[in-house]
Structures are given as C-alpha cells and as structure tokens.
Computed example of a mutant assay.
Amino acid sequence: MTVLVRPAHGDELGEVGDITVAAYEVDGYLVPDDPYVPRLRDAAARAREAEVYVATLEDLPGRIAGTVTFCPDGSPWREIARPGEGEFRMLGVAPGARRRGVADALVGTCLERSRELGYTAVVLSSLPEQRAAQRIYARLGFRRTPDLDWSPMPGVDLLAFRLDL
C-alpha cells in the first residue's frame, strides 16, 4: 500500500482538524468538553505557525488518511524541543485508515524534514495511554526521555521521546 505525504492545502485544513479530533476521540483520549479540542481542531493556526502535513492512500485518492504537525525552530507550537531539534505533534490517523502505514509515513516525513534542516534530533510528547503510538515510535528508533516529561496542566502528564539523527 502506497502512502503519499505532502503539505496540507489551505482548503483541507478544516478536514485536517476534524481528522485530528476524530483520531483522539476514537481512542478515548478526550473527555466531553475537553479544552484541548479547539486546539486540535485549529489546523489553520498550526499551518500558519508550523508545518502541517497530510497523508493519502493510493487506493483512496483525494481522501486524507492522516495528519501531523511538524514544529521547526521558531514555531510557537514547539513544546519540548531545544534549538536544533525537530518536534512533531498532533499525529492523527483517520479511524478507517489505521494499520496501513499512515503513521509511519507521517513520522518519516518529520524525520526527513528534520534532516533537511540539519537538526540533531526529533522529540515528541505522548500521553501515557497512547501505547499504540509509542510502539510505533519505539519501532522507528525513538527512546523514552524522562528528563523531558512535563505537564501542560494539572492531571495531564506527558511522556517525552527522542530520536537522535
């Protein structure tokens, strides 16, 4: 199965936000009236201040199968990256496109982009419950980096992962 990854087009950003929210909802990572939903849904802001990528599947042309936000140096969307490191956030795969290599392809694009920019590493944060995503990260070479763990708000603890390039 061929997964194609490219920058999101402006007219797709509403759908990108919807897919991101749906991916978090289907796994039970959001509670009713979760204050994080508007941030997940606002792909337009992410596209202005970071790089938003979408994945499509060859057998489903024109349909977005997943998305990720890559945060280069200077992006206000960066949370734990230091200068010279890439960071990605809000990786989401549409529920109907899972287990088809979409997440791997999106992470691969972030790694490629980091190498293009000459970064020394890529970092990310993950909820402890996001074990399926963490298995993908481990398979791709990311390692837990507890010294970068953090909490954006009370009751939300995030685990950090890093891949040296």
Rank of each mutant, 00 (worst) to 15 (best):
D73Y: 00
H9W: 06
V37G: 10
S126R: 12
D42F: 05
P152E: 15
T67E: 11
R100V: 04
A50W: 00
L13Q: 02
P146E: 13
L127P: 11
R115C: 08
P76C: 06
L30A: 10
M90D: 03
T145M: 12
G74P: 07
A81C: 12
L124K: 04
R100Y: 04
V5K: 00
P83T: 10
Q130A: 15
E116P: 02
T20Y: 01
A105H: 02
A105W: 01
S126A: 15
A43D: 03
L163S: 02
A23H: 02
P146G: 13
L13E: 02
F88A: 01
E85K: 06
Y53L: 14
R39E: 12
D34K: 08
R63E: 15
A94W: 01
P72Q: 11
D157C: 10
F142I: 00
R82N: 12
P38A: 13
L60Y: 15
A160Q: 06
E25R: 15
G14P: 02
M153E: 15
V16I: 07
V93S: 06
R100W: 03
L124S: 07
V16Y: 03
P146M: 12
E49V: 07
F70V: 07
R82P: 07
P61Q: 10
T56W: 05
H9Y: 05
V68N: 03
A138M: 07
D18W: 06
T2L: 13
L165D: 09
T69F: 01
R46N: 09
Q134H: 07
V31N: 06
G118K: 07
D18G: 05
A44L: 13
L117N: 02
R46P: 00
T20P: 04
F70W: 08
D73L: 02
A55P: 03
P95L: 08
A55W: 02
T145R: 14
S126Y: 11
S114D: 08
V54C: 05
A81R: 09
E87L: 12
P76A: 05
A43R: 04
T20N: 10
V123P: 00
V37C: 08
E87I: 14
F161S: 00
R39P: 01
R113M: 04
V16H: 04
G10P: 05
G10Q: 09
A47F: 06
L163Y: 03
H9E: 15
T69K: 02
